[in-house]
């Protein structure tokens, strides 16, 4: 199986490591991988060691998509493209905050790259700060719960929708808790020509505060409460939605993680949980999860 070599510095139970393994399994050896700055990059490449066994490059925090575009152009220009896949694997902050411009440009140009966003919902490598992907009500170090705060006051940025609007032929959401689903979707994405995007939900034991053994279990709860809808968008059409039979109440997901525990202890927390339930219910309606 193609995967990261062991010995990397990822936390025990690391979601990024799992995500990278599933991407590598999906793309195989004939691939060039680009990573922006972040947990994945730092934990896999402490000079002079590297966990990567495919050609891999890290440049800066905000330019993975642009670097990938450049590699794609170079391979085409020099007649070396063949079946080689150019894949970017990066975290949420690097993808949809600081990297927004680069990925928008690459997708607008139609460059033949696949971008996999590993979404652990905060800037984890720098100490769990809030990103545009941090969900409503989550406590992070720059959106902490406090006497006058219920945590992050904004919902997640809907990055898949933004890239569908760019005309991407294939955009999908998945989760590291569903490895076969993720491998299937990444494989499909790299086999489609043009800019394709896979957004993988990735529960982080350190940042979300749960036991290292629960990474997969927490991710499943996100899907089973309809907070993380899993679907594919092909040429702008919603296809292949993963139905949620017996939708669980969001409390089950929220209480599994330390980053939401303030919602259960603060005055007014119940009302906040109700707002989160409303987000889940909207997903059910909007994506047809029933």
């Amino acid at each position: 199986m193609s995967r990261l070599a062991p010995g990397h510095r990822g936390c025990a139970g690391c979601c990024d490591a799992m995500a990278a393994n599933f991407v590598l399994e999906a793309v195989g050896d004939d691939a060039i991988v680009v990573s922006p700055t972040g947990c994945l990059e730092v934990m896999t490449t402490p000079y002079p060691e590297s966990s990567w066994e495919v050609p891999w490059i890290h440049s800066l925090f905000e330019n993975a998509a642009a670097v990938a575009s450049g590699i794609d152009a170079a391979l085409k220009a020099m007649g070396r493209k063949g079946n080689t896949k150019v894949v970017a694997i990066g975290g949420d902050g690097a993808t949809l905050d600081i990297g927004m411009q680069a990925i928008s440009g690459a997708f607008e140009r139609g460059d033949d790259i696949t971008y996999v966003c590993v979404d652990n919902e905060a800037y984890m490598n720098t100490g769990v700060q809030r990103s545009g992907a941090t969900p409503y009500g989550a406590s992070t170090t720059t959106s902490p719960a406090g006497k006058q705060s219920f945590g992050n006051p904004r919902p997640k940025k809907n990055m898949p929708a933004i890239l569908v609007a760019h005309g991407s032929p294939y955009v999908a959401t998945t989760s590291i808790s569903y490895p076969k689903d993720m491998i299937r979707k990444v494989k499909k994405a790299v086999d489609i020509e043009g800019p394709t995007y896979v957004h993988a939900h990735a529960p982080c034991t350190t940042g979300w505060k749960f036991d290292t053994s629960k990474t997969v279990e927490v991710g499943k709860l996100a899907v089973e409460t309809a907070l993380w809808p899993m679907y594919e968008m092909e040429n702008g059409e919603l296809t292949n939605v993963r139905k949620v039979k017996n939708q669980k109440p969001v409390e089950e997901y929220l209480k599994s993680q330390g980053r939401f525990k303030h919602l259960f202890t603060m005055d007014g927390g119940k009302a906040e949980i109700a707002k989160i339930q409303a987000i889940a219910d909207w997903n059910v309606e909007h994506y047809g999860l029933k």
Partner: peptide, 28 residues
Amino acid sequence: LLCPDCSIEETEEKYVVFDFDFCKGCGI
């Protein structure tokens, strides 16, 4: 499939062996 540290390998008979050089004990 799940092990984040490539520390569980399937044998020919499809049972598994653990690589304790690298296993971090996450418990997944």
